[in-house]
Design a protein around this nucleic acid. Structure first.
Lengths: 231, 231
DNA sequence: GCAAAAGTGTTACAATTACACCCATGC
DNA sequence: GCATGGGTGTAATTGTAACACTTTTGC
C-alpha cells in the first residue's frame, strides 16, 4: 500500500441492496447484526473490499455467502457514501450496489438473514435504510425506460403475473392490458406460444411470455428532445 | 485508522468531470500531467480524500484550486471506479463527480488547465477518458427529464441562445420553437419581460427568459407506466 | 420596402391511458 | 348457462415534431 499522510487510506466496504418481489410486495434482503454497533438492527449484506478485487467482484463475493449467486439476475452500482460519521467505529467509505432476484426463486438464506418489505423496514444500521431508499428509486425509474423487469420476473409468465410484479415494484397500479402493449411494441416481451392452465375457477388460459433479452438495455432513451427524424 | 489485514484500506480519490458549453461545443476541463505516469496526458482535476471531509467536500476542495467554486452551478456524484490496475503506481479507488458551469462564465484557469471538446478529447490519463464519457451520458439523459439546463445557461437568455446550449450539450439538433414550448409547459422556464437588443442585421428583438428554479428537479418523472390518473 | 431574426398557430403524428367488449375455460 | 379470468378493439388524451406564417426590428 502506498498511502501517506498526504494520501490517507480508508477501509472500503461493498454493500448490496438485493430486492425481490415476494407476496406482491417489494422486499429487501437484510441481516440482523448480533454485535455493536447497532446490535439487533438490520443491515445490508456487504463487507470489506479486499486484495485485487474490484468493487463489483467484492459485492458478488459478499453476496455469495448469503445467496446462490446465480439467482442474481442483475447487479449495478448505485452510489458511494463517505460521511466520516457513518460508522461509529471509524471512518469507512461504502459503495452500494443494486441487485435483483426474480420472483420465482426462493433462495435459502442464513439464519440471521431475511426479507423485509421496503415500505415497512425495521430499524436499520448505519445509513443502510436510506440506501434501500436509493435503490428502490433507481429500480422504479428504470422500470419505465429499460427492460430491467427481466430481472424481477420468472423465465416465462402470464401478463397478469407480470403485472403483479410491476405493481409491487412500482408501488402503484398498472393496467395489465397497457403493460402488455407497451412492452410488446417496444420489443421487450415476446409470446412463447405456450399457455398457462386456467385457475380452479376456470377462465381463459393465459398466454405465456418471456423477455426477449436477459440483460439490461435502454428501451426508451429519449423522453423528450429526440434527435430530429431526418425525413 | 482502524484498518487491518481483514479490512484493508485504500487511498481514495475524488475526481471532477466539469463540463461547460463553449463556442457551441460541450467541453470538459482537463489539466496536463507533468509527471509520470501518463506524463503529458490530460487528466481530470481531483485528488485524495482527506481527514474528516466527505467525497462531496473533497471534490469541491480540489476544484477550488482550479476554478472559482461559485461558478459551479451543479455538482452530483457520478460513479466509483475500483479496478486494481487503474493506477500503475498502486491501488486507488476513485469517485467521480459531474460538475457544470454556465456558459456565460469564463473562469480563469491555471496554466496547465484547459477546456477540451468532449467529442475530440486528447490522450487522457488513467480511466479519465471513459469517465468523461459517463458524465456526458448522464448530462444528456438528465437534460431530457430534469431542469439541469439551468446549470449550463446564463441567468437570462433568449430561446435562440438556450437552443445553442442544448444543441451543443445533446450533440444533435433541436428546434427552438419546440424547446421553448416544452420547457414553458413544464414550468421550467419563465419570461423575464425584458427583451434583448436585436443583432446588427436587425430582426425582431428576442424575449428573455430565465429558469424558474436554480436547483435540480425532476420535471418528467414518469416516461411511461404513469400512476393512474384517478378520475 | 426588404431582409433578418424571433415567436405563434396549426397540423400531423406517435405513444399511452381508459374502458367497453369479445374469447376460452371449468363447473 | 354462467361465472371467471384473459385478451382485443377502440376512443380519448396527451405530448412532441414539423412547418408555415406573423411580428418586430435595422437598413
Amino acid at each position: 500500500m502506498w498511502s501517506s499522510p498526504e494520501r490517507p487510506a480508508y477501509p472500503h466496504q461493498a454493500l448490496a441492496v438485493v430486492l425481490q418481489v415476494r407476496a406482491r410486495r417489494l422486499h429487501a434482503m437484510l441481516w440482523r447484526r448480533p454485535n455493536e454497533p447497532f446490535a439487533g438492527a438490520w443491515a445490508l449484506p456487504g463487507g470489506p473490499l479486499l486484495g485485487e478485487e474490484t468493487l463489483g467482484a467484492s459485492v458478488a463475493r459478499q453476496l455469495a455467502s448469503k445467496v446462490e449467486l446465480g439467482h442474481l439476475a442483475h447487479l449495478e452500482q448505485l452510489e458511494t457514501r463517505s460521511d466520516p460519521g457513518r460508522d461509529p467505529r471509524g471512518r469507512t467509505v461504502a459503495t452500494a450496489y443494486l441487485g435483483l432476484i426474480p420472483s420465482h426463486l426462493d433462495p435459502e438464506l442464513p439464519e440471521d438473514t431475511g426479507w423485509h418489505p421496503v415500505e415497512d423496514l425495521p430499524a436499520t444500521a448505519f445509513d443502510h435504510g436510506s440506501l434501500v431508499g436509493s435503490a428502490v428509486g433507481r429500480l422504479r425509474a428504470k422500470l419505465s425506460y429499460t427492460n430491467v423487469g427481466f430481472a424481477l420476473a420468472p423465465p416465462t409468465f402470464s401478463i397478469a403475473e407480470l403485472r403483479e410484479i410491476y405493481v409491487a415494484a412500482l408501488g402503484y397500479d398498472v393496467a395489465a392490458t397497457n403493460l402488455q402493449r407497451v412492452l410488446l411494441r417496444r420489443g421487450v416481451l415476446e409470446p412463447t406460444g405456450e399457455t398457462a392452465p386456467p385457475g380452479r375457477a376456470g377462465g381463459r388460459p393465459a398466454a405465456l411470455y418471456r423477455f426477449v433479452q436477459a440483460g439490461l438495455e435502454v428501451t426508451d432513451p429519449f423522453a423528450v428532445f429526440r434527435p430530429p427524424c431526418g425525413r
